[in-house]
Simulated scan of single mutants.
Amino acid sequence: MAVALVFVWLGMVLGISFLEAPLKFRAPGVTLPIGLSIGRLVFRALNAVEVVLAAGIAVALVVGDAGWVAFLVAAVALVVQLFAVRPALTRRSNAVLEGQDAPRSRAHYAYVGLEIIKVVALIATGVALF
């Protein structure tokens, strides 16, 4: 069960963070405010599902003993994203959506870096569980 949950989580992060997020801004007619509005909804949903998947993996790992370290790296990266990086991203997107001229946020780089850490950790977790 843990292996399936790990790879579902990995697939969601790869599909949304590295495919959907950058591509939506290239679609005709998608302005920065529209892209940010879509991104906020998508990432809020992704993060909620990630929390559920992380909880499921934690429960499954209690039964076994493989993959704990890599899983904890992924879980900590998620917690940092939710509580340290997302608030800064939300402040910027709120400002843009209110029509303010907000400078690009460096928090995006932190979020992407944490996504890369999660991807590597989830792959390691999945491999350890096999």
Rank of each mutant, 00 (worst) to 15 (best):
A2C: 07
A2Q: 07
A2P: 02
V6K: 00
V6M: 10
V8L: 15
W9R: 01
L10T: 00
G11V: 03
L14E: 02
G15R: 03
I16P: 04
F18R: 01
F18N: 01
L19I: 14
A21C: 10
L23Y: 08
K24A: 08
R26K: 12
A27H: 03
G35I: 03
S37H: 11
S37G: 15
I38E: 00
I38M: 06
R40Q: 14
L41H: 10
V42R: 03
F43Y: 12
L46C: 13
N47L: 06
A48S: 12
V51N: 01
A54N: 13
A55V: 14
V59M: 11
V59H: 07
V59D: 15
A60Y: 07
L61P: 05
A66C: 10
V69E: 07
V69K: 06
A70Y: 06
A74Q: 04
V76Q: 09
V76P: 03
V79A: 15
V80Q: 03
V80Y: 04
L82C: 04
F83Q: 06
A84I: 08
A84K: 11
V85Q: 01
R86H: 12
P87L: 07
R92E: 10
R92Y: 08
S93D: 09
S93A: 15
S93H: 02
A95I: 08
A95S: 12
V96E: 05
D101C: 03
A107C: 10
Y109T: 12
Y109I: 15
A110T: 09
Y111N: 00
V112I: 13
I116N: 01
I116H: 01
I117Q: 01
V119K: 02
A124Q: 05
